[in-house]
Design a protein around this nucleic acid. Structure first.
Length: 451
DNA sequence: TCTATTTGTGTGACTGCTCCCTCCG
DNA sequence: GCGGAGGGAGCAGTCACACAAATAG
């Protein structure tokens, strides 16, 4: 990529008009990016593309914002934010160019800042790189192990508060949807053992959770996945701070998910074989694309969350694949002996015929979901018919509980939207108290000036 | 000097509610 | 033409993520 830049003061600033040359050999960022930003250089195939992106403002150095604020506070309120009370730490890593730092703020660098007269500030040692950022979360998780789940969830009182965050972290339904997007069935699940499971911990959890949440909470705290982490709450570990992904409705715990890893040790090798036969058009189990925070190079791209209808499409796609390509299916099953979701559409329809419309809300009761769980528990999963029956059962249950209504993906955004002021249904700006004060002062000044 | 990592910045996605438009009987 | 149903537009604030600059080793 070659873009006209102005180099000055050790920095380079790009123009608004950015010329991007397409190069087949260079591994530029634009060649593999999936950024949602609306740069024309990404959408256009022409060798010369114009980027409409705004030029980036000069990036501040780490702690610069804090230092500037601290310096400002110490200047404005020397009694409160006196720098002489500050404890200097030798652990502070000074930047190479110390001249760029404010002299006053250099004393205010992290960590362990203590303000004598600032009771309203939180004294908190700031760790630039926590050793294991999920320890606290894991502590909460262990605390929540006493929470009820499955059909025993208490929706009143403190237990709800305790379990609430857990529900948000473990979005079983979303995991299910993602699995369907990827063509994965939780029964079949992308399973692996040993060190290979490090990357697949969340998925393994998705296989372990669901209908067996109670057993997980109660007994599996020491569960070792064979990887680096033995805690295993991979969804919560993906980010230190995540938005509250929440299932707005639907008894997601009723989804009959069977932990195949625990009940079927032979699946490990079968899964590896199935992965070797991976292909986009067959029913083999693809490697799950998890929503992983990308590194600086953007090698792990985010998996865009798609619409709610997508799982349904995937289901039908799976059914059609099995129905239209029996030869391929047989070849796969014979060659790999892997876990493949084989659905006979006619058989499913015949099984479903005595239940009426799958789209009716009449069958949405929890008792039926428990019934399915009970039936699943009775199925001999080691036999081929049992696997098939379990697959069919789960397919039916998933279809039965399919939500065609709007699905809240981020509960925190819903809460924010609910609390946001509106005017005729549209969001309006919150009244800024500082602005109102300024306006009041201006009004006062104008009135006094007039007088 | 080079590579890897950290971190600040920019931007699209998402959220609920109401109005307005289109379609159909 | 009228009325109901259905769906899209639009708003502000927040979050998640890609990107790039700065820093560490």
């Amino acid at each position: 990529m070659s873009s006209p830049c102005i180099s000055g003061g050790g920095r380079t600033y790009g123009f608004d008009l950015e010329i991007v040359k397409s190069s087949s050999t260079s591994s530029t960022r634009t060649s593999h990016t999936s950024s949602p930003s609306s740069t024309l250089s990404e959408s256009s195939n022409s060798p010369l593309a114009i980027s409409t992106r705004k030029p980036r403002t000069p990036r501040k150095r780490p702690n610069q914002t804090y230092n500037e604020a601290a310096a400002l506070l110490s200047t404005a309120y020397p009694n409160i934010f006196s720098t002489k009370h500050l404890t200097k730490s030798s652990k502070v890593t000074k930047p190479r160019d110390n001249s760029l730092l404010l002299d006053q703020s250099s004393d205010l660098l992290l960590p362990y800042r203590v303000f004598d007269n600032s009771g309203f500030l939180i004294h908190q040692p700031i760790q630039r790189k926590p050793s294991f950022g999920n320890e606290s979360k894991f502590a909460n998780f262990t605390d929540k192990s006493s929470c009820q789940s499955s059909g025993e969830v208490d929706f009143h009182g403190n237990s709800m508060e305790l379990c609430d965050g857990l529900d948000e972290d473990f979005d079983a339904e979303s995991i299910l949807d993602e699995e369907f997007e990827e063509g994965i069935d939780s029964i079949m699940g992308h399973l692996s053992v040993g060190n290979e499971m490090v990357d697949d911990v969340p998925n393994a959890i998705s296989s372990s959770f669901g209908g067996q949440m109670n057993s997980w909470y109660g007994n599996s705290m020491g569960y070792n996945f064979g990887g680096k982490s033995q805690y295993g709450h991979g969804i919560a570990m993906r980010r230190g701070v995540t938005a509250l992904r929440h299932v707005d409705e639907g008894n997601w715990w009723n989804f009959p998910i069977v932990d195949m890893l625990q009940i079927s040790p032979r699946l490990a090798t079968a899964t590896a074989t199935a992965n070797s036969n991976s292909g986009p058009e067959c029913n083999s189990i693809p490697k799950p694309k998890l929503k992983v925070k990308s590194n600086s190079r953007g090698e792990k791209k985010k998996k865009k969350m798609e619409k709610v209808e997508r799982p349904a499409v995937m289901e039908e796609k799976n059914v059609k694949l099995t129905e239209e390509n029996p030869i391929r299916e047989n070849s796969i099953s014979q060659s790999s002996q892997g876990l493949i979701l084989k659905l006979n559409y006619d058989h499913v329809l015949s099984e479903w015929s005595d239940r009426g419309s799958p789209f009716s809300d009449e069958s949405m009761g929890c008792s039926e979901g428990n019934d399915v769980s009970a039936r699943l528990a009775q199925i001999d999963l080691f036999s081929e018919n049992g696997m098939r029956e379990a697959s069919v059962l789960r397919y039916k249950e998933k279809r039965r509980t399919r939500l065609f209504s709007k699905k809240i993906r981020y509960q925190v955004r819903k809460l924010n939207a609910d609390q946001r002021p509106r005017m005729k249904g549209r969001f309006v700006r919150r009244p800024d108290p500082s602005t109102s004060r300024d306006e009041q002062e201006k009004k006062k000044k104008t009135t006094t000036f007039k007088l």
